[in-house]
Amino acid sequence: MGSATPVDDEAALIAQLRAGDESAYEQVVRTYGGRLLAVTRRIVGSEEDARDIVQDAFLNAFKSVGRFEGNSKLSTWLHRIAVNAALMKLRTRKRKPEQSIETMLPSFLEDGHHEERFKSWDEPVDKALERAETRQLVRAKIDELPDGYRTVLVLRDIEGLDTEETAKMLGLSVNATKIRLHRARQALRTMLAPHFAASGGGKATP
């Protein structure tokens, strides 16, 4: 417990890493490992793969700590290494063809109006998410998004990267990244709606 305390003096910690101080390696793994594991798991969708990726990410980081320039925070640097490795894993893995997201996007009538009448949600999300089961539900729905959409949503909305950096990591254009994020959010809304509005959505009357 309490192992994820923030690092007060990052420069000193990096100096210790460079000097090969065993306790510094352990501190880094204990401080950042949980968060790295969570984001990696969310990208690759497998606990076992996530562990392998995080382990390799730490080893790579320790080896190249001499090249760490200190322009970014240590945590940001570690996240980049792990996220890149996770994305690489996703690309090399044999996957079934990407499932379509179209059915989870809003549909419109010929006159441009929404086809669906949106039923308001029962309570504010922060209140709903005070319940562990609701947080679990939201994570499960994010995990159900097709890879290409889930990764954008994770990098932008959860990791908090900006559009440019997300685009670069994914090898997409800035515009494609924005479109994917928007669709991912819309699809997630569609998946959450039946759980957040007691009586669900309905067709708009013409």
């Binding site: 969310r42 949600w121 999300v125 609701t134 939201v138 959860i158 997630l188």
Partner: peptide, 10 residues
């Protein structure tokens, strides 16, 4: 709310 839910949950 969806964006917020994702942030809180993860």
């Amino acid at each position: 709310s969806t964006v917020k839910a994702g942030r809180i949950a993860c």
